[in-house]
Amino acid sequence: MIDSHAHIYAKDFEHDLDDVIQRAQEVGISKILLPNIDLNSIEPMLATEARYPDICHSMMGLHPCYVNGNIEQDLATIKSWFAQHHFIAVGEIGIDLYWDKTFQAEQEFAFRTQLQWAKELNLPVVIHTRDSIEQTLSILSQEQDGRLKGVFHCFGGTVAEAKAINQLGFSLGIGGVSTFKNGGMDDVIPELDLNFVILETDCPYLAPTPHRGKRNEPSFMKLVAQKIADLKALPLSTISDITARNTQALFNLK
């Protein structure tokens, strides 16, 4: 299995990261993909990748919740990193209108700009969308010229939204929300095309049941895989194999 979205460089893991990595490997997780969020996360993310170079792979992008009035300068700094280091994706990027709409225009500008980088660099994108699926799909459909590919991480939407995302050539990142009793995914997951599904934790956030409310970690992703297997009436090994292949192909992992 591959955890396609994990913030294990966060301070939540600074005291026991070796143990976290070991537990992940013990349940069969071979790789952990690290999305960047802002200028301050770059150094700890790259340090984590350097510490576990065979397991961890970094992305570079500006998360919508960290977009502000300084957007052009911040984007220039983020962009400069692509000339300094190999990244597997542009991410995590997108639009988040859940907390605050103050910088909606700047978020949309940042999203569109980073989509254009992905086309120039021939890299996939990792998209964060919260209370913004309509705006996100609108911009993505405008920018999609056949060169864009990527994943809507932490997908918790409807079957119709899943199909709209897939029609644009994008995958769905399924995580802990799929295990929540009130998450609404029990009726959605059976309808999903497994060719467009990858697994993630988004740790330290969104721990799956029965760990809900606690710190999430990559090893818990096996619970997500099992939930999908149960809802699809397929063996766990089948879900693990399909999603790992999908992730390897999307991010061009060896």
Rank of each mutant, 00 (worst) to 15 (best):
G213H: 03
A10S: 15
K11T: 14
D131Q: 13
H128P: 04
A47Y: 02
W81A: 03
D96M: 03
E161A: 12
V126M: 10
D19R: 12
G169M: 08
A162G: 14
H57P: 01
F13Y: 15
A105L: 07
E217C: 12
K79L: 04
P64F: 00
I133H: 05
A105M: 01
P44Q: 10
E134D: 14
V20K: 13
E217T: 12
F251E: 02
F155L: 07
A47L: 14
E191R: 12
P35Q: 08
T102S: 14
S237F: 03
D145E: 09
L148E: 10
D241C: 10
A10V: 03
I95Q: 00
M45K: 09
G176H: 02
F152Y: 12
G183Y: 05
F180N: 03
Y98A: 08
Q248S: 04
L140V: 12
E43A: 15
I198R: 09
A47T: 15
K227P: 04
F87S: 06
I127P: 02
I133A: 08
L199H: 11
L231C: 12
T102L: 07
N70A: 10
H5G: 12
S80C: 08
E14I: 12
L148M: 14
L250T: 09
I139E: 02
M45C: 13
T201G: 10
D186T: 15
P210S: 05
Y98L: 07
V224Q: 04
I37L: 11
E49Q: 15
I139Y: 11
I32E: 05
Q248C: 08
T238E: 15
H211Y: 14
I127A: 03
V90Q: 00
L137R: 11
L75C: 09
R147C: 14
S219P: 01
M221R: 11
Q226E: 13
